[in-house]
Design a protein around this nucleic acid. Structure first.
Lengths: 205, 205
DNA sequence: CACTGTATATTTCCAGTGTAAATATAGATG
DNA sequence: CATCTATATTTACACTGGAAATATACAGTG
């Protein structure tokens, strides 16, 4: 988006790095036009190549969208991680992760929708699975030591992670689909913390 | 799907009740073919009318899908309500509602996906809002009296409802998008109760 | 019954989509 | 240089949702 303008240092292939350019253009289109405006032809046109060029790199529309979803997960994880790293203390880190999760969703609604829709993304894709797991791991990390009634089960740690993920994901999705609007003043800023139980920690730090 | 075969008692209009027939055919197609196979032309063909017939009743594809979503919410609410009515005691009723929510989603994944996707359903539609609210009310009902640390806030009741809804909805969505598969043995039956905190009740019954 | 109005449904056409197959291009390799 | 191969284009096709004009048949009125 910023280099290979005038210098034209190297142009290894016909375009250079079409694969990345297509993904970036796709995300750009997604953020501006929304999902309905995201077509292979529109993405190709934005980069300035023929409408069948994406197929060489992604195989199909689904492959292209999956690649966009992967990039989305990378950004999602990075965004959360950034907030977590800036916080100190278990409680603050937990809150930062959860708030980051929701804030990313609300800031990039279309990308978030694409990332979590099996209709667009191919969850059998290895890279996507790995990228999604990286996002999950941020939540998993901050859930270590969280204390509640199900934490002592044999699979307590997994339950804790799934509980937090479900809570935060459901909240984000329901807000995005406008389901909370009627019961909320009017698109008012409502924080995930306001509906998160105040869990204790087994080993307070 | 079952009557007006031989008797042909009355045929008030050209078709009789095309609007309902289209919705039912749409749901049928949705369950069998999934969302990608759900086109206006396919629905119309299933009923045996021209491909522009749906437009007279729903205006557009979005209108048609919204109507399907409304029917979905009706069934969703009825399914949950059925489980709640069969249970006795606050705890059992809570569990029945939440389990019903998830079970409906897992049993009708495509319909559930459509119901909660702003891409397909028009959430400005009055009937849809009302139908969605009916589903929400089932959760709201069973959340009355639930005791936790945020229940004493001025908007405690609303927080409780949103918390439960987020938890159950997120769990359903994440399961549907296959996100839990890697951390779960293998599509194993995992119950929402296993990640639901054991809340108390203010006024145990 | 005949006449008219109106809701319902069809026909025809169009711009747009994803995809497949054949072809062209240009860097890499010998 | 010649050849190979990854990259990109051209062309064609089946399919989609939607617009507009037309046909159909019921409802209401004389």
């Amino acid at each position: 988006m910023n280099d290979n303008q005038l210098p034209k240092v190297t142009k290894p292939y016909h375009h250079g790095d079409l694969k990345n350019a297509l993904v970036l253009a796709g995300i750009d289109l997604l953020e501006t036009q929304g999902l309905p405006g995201l077509s292979l032809r529109a993405i190709a046109a934005a980069v300035g190549v023929s409408h069948t060029a994406p197929k060489n790199h992604f195989g199909s529309l689904r492959g292209m969208l999956t690649a966009i979803g992967i990039e989305g997960f990378h950004r999602h994880a990075a965004f959360m991680r950034q907030g977590v790293d800036a916080a100190s203390g278990q409680k603050a880190r937990q809150q930062a992760a959860m708030e980051g999760y929701v804030r990313f969703a609300l800031t990039h609604p279309h990308l978030f929708e694409l990332m979590f829709s099996p209709l667009y993304c191919d969850y059998a894709n290895t890279d996507l699975k790995q990228a999604a797991k990286a996002s999950y791991c941020v939540l998993a990390d901050i859930s270590v030591g969280l204390d509640w009634d199900k934490a002592d089960a044999p699979d307590g740690q997994r339950r804790t992670e799934m509980m937090l993920w479900s809570l935060v994901h459901g909240y984000a999705k329901l807000r995005l689909s406008g389901q909370f609007s009627p019961s909320t003043p009017a698109g008012a800023a409502f924080d995930i913390a306001e509906i998160t139980p105040d869990f204790g920690y087994k080993d307070p730090q």
